[in-house]
Design a protein around this nucleic acid. Sequence first.
DNA 1: TTGTTCCAGCTTTTT
DNA 2: GCTGGAACAA
Length: 718
Amino acid sequence: MDVSFLINNLNDAQRLAVTAPSKAMLILAGAGSGKTRVLVHRIAWKIQVEGVSPHSILAVTFTNKAALEMRDRVEKLLKFPTQAMWIGTFHGLAHRILRRHASEAQLPTTFQVMDSDDQLRVIKRLLKSMRIDDKKWPPKQIQWFVNGQKDEGLRAKHLSHNGDFFLEQMIKLYHAYETICNQSGLVDFAELLLRAHELLRDTPELLAFYRQRFREVHVDEFQDTNKVQYAWLRLLTEGKDNLFIVGDDDQSIYGWRGAQIANIFNFQQDYPNYELIRLEQNYRSTAYILQAANQLITHNNNRMGKQLWTDSDNGELISLYSAFNEQDEAYFVVDQIQQWLEAGNLKKEVAILYRSNAQSRQFEERLMIEAIPYRVYGGLRFFERAEIKNALAYLRLLSNRNDDPSFERIINTPTRGIGQRTLDSLRDFAKYEQISLWQATERRINDNFFSARAGNALKKFQKIMQDLETESHSLVLYEKVKLVGEKSGLIDFYKKEKEDRGEARIENLEELINAARAFDYPCEDDETLNDLDMFLAHATLEAGEMQGADADDCVQLMTLHSAKGLEFKHVFMVGLEEGLFPSGRSIEDVARLEEERRLCYVGITRAMQKLCISYAESRRLYGKESYPSPSRFLREIPKDCVQEIRVRAKVTKTFKTIKVTESLGGHRVGDKISHAKFGLGTILQLEGEGTQEKVQINFRESGLKWLMLAYAKFERLS
DNA sequence: TTGTTCCAGCTTTTT
DNA sequence: GCTGGAACAA
């Protein structure tokens, strides 16, 4: 059989990686070097050439998007279905294993997955019930602590405080949190991984089964794995060394959420016979862009070392724009986008990348004014909307009455006259009797504990759930979802809301029904899982996959983090200022600063043809004006890749209200001055009034700058 | 129960 | 400077 199509279009390094025998392989794949391609072809090669059963393939990614893409491309390459292969995210696969072996993992068969929002609610509730001051013990911090420990593979019982009061309290809370989760049958994201690891570690038959089953284990973005994820991979492949990992230490940008680049070194130690292949040929960017990226990243010490190269031309110089403030920056960027579009290019080829979400607003406003369609990534996703989460909470409670967080969420949504007092009483009783809120409600109703009013309200709620139970029994999934919308009173409730808002919510609920109708979970023959539970888990694990097709031609706005893995012909990297990028919180710590630099590296390497970098000399941040200095990363990019851009003539249009004058505070255009920091220069423009007086100076050493007259330290040379 | 007001907090984000 | 949550009054 002719298998040349599997290797024909690969370079030498890629071909080596694809055709290497089954053993520990470390593929260091630079940005744009075709790593997904290698993974996809490798899987296809194993099946097509070496006769490995699709059943024996495991491929793990971090995002659903990446998993989907891999599945898609393998399918296109091999031209046969990929259902039998386990291709998915760490969390998705861990969930799958836990569902199959729920009882061995000490979970109820109806266990559900909590997202971070649910998790935070549980913690807040917990603090209340333990009468702990949430000012002194911020819920976010506790969440951070718990997840951090779980990422490290540690449970509360493994931790000791050694007399440290803070730790002691944290451990106590961690413990209490574990108890609640277990009672309610809830599993958070970190727990999925931890439990799946413990399950395999402590159940030899299962471990043996999965070790035997997965002959080829592939991991994408390995630099982002945390300790538990690595331990899980290690369990599955120990002894057989059938672990094929692809990663790029220079693109590790998730250290703050537990990712350990050290896992690459651990891998080298744990699999001493590993083979290393570097993919250094870049097929994405022009030579100038690559040169900038290469040079920037050499400023990091903690790296394995890698030099990207390309066959392509130098391309255009990287543009650098020094904006006068954040509005000027937005004006400049949108102006450049218009030029790009006038030249006959597409909107979707353009991306604006920023460090923090708050920066998007200026660009949105400007794009809106110019009527250029755009799309902002991030923000609230479909399954995270309040109305959707409310409907899902009814479904969860339907599946599992012990799900207290869901009970809390909907007991009075829509309002049915169950007030704080009633709830507090129920909570206390449930806590005292160690039963769920649902059970507490039942018992209190039977005992006629409450006043007629509160009691009736509770009975009403109880009846809703009972009716749902009996009526939904014979229904298919989407009909159940539909029924919940009606019976719960949510639809009626939203109908009464202000028109726009309520209408949108009802539309979303209808969309949820559609999602349920279309839901089709990957099912192997041996799996007979409850479709409602699977749908609910899907909603949590793939909260973002409902977003519309990105086929629309829009300018793309996103953070640098979410740009990883994507590429655009024209990239704007904005806000390169000390304190913003690198983030002020990372400046003091070398490791964190290096992560910021990698983030910058990721940003640069997203660009295929044209890269524009900008910074503002003044920026409004948290309501007050700041005067940041340009990012240190700018100095780390070689000068000969960069050209400075000036478009003053156009930009003054934005500042119609600003008075441009010939002289201000005794200074005149054309004056020669000397500045304490920037040295000698000439005044080019003066504008503004009062405290907003600004002066533009052309410095001999450091070029054009706008300075605030009130702050600037310079004197006139006569 | 709802609307108002005040106050803290404020990278990055997937799962 | 904006937002979300909590505390408070009507």
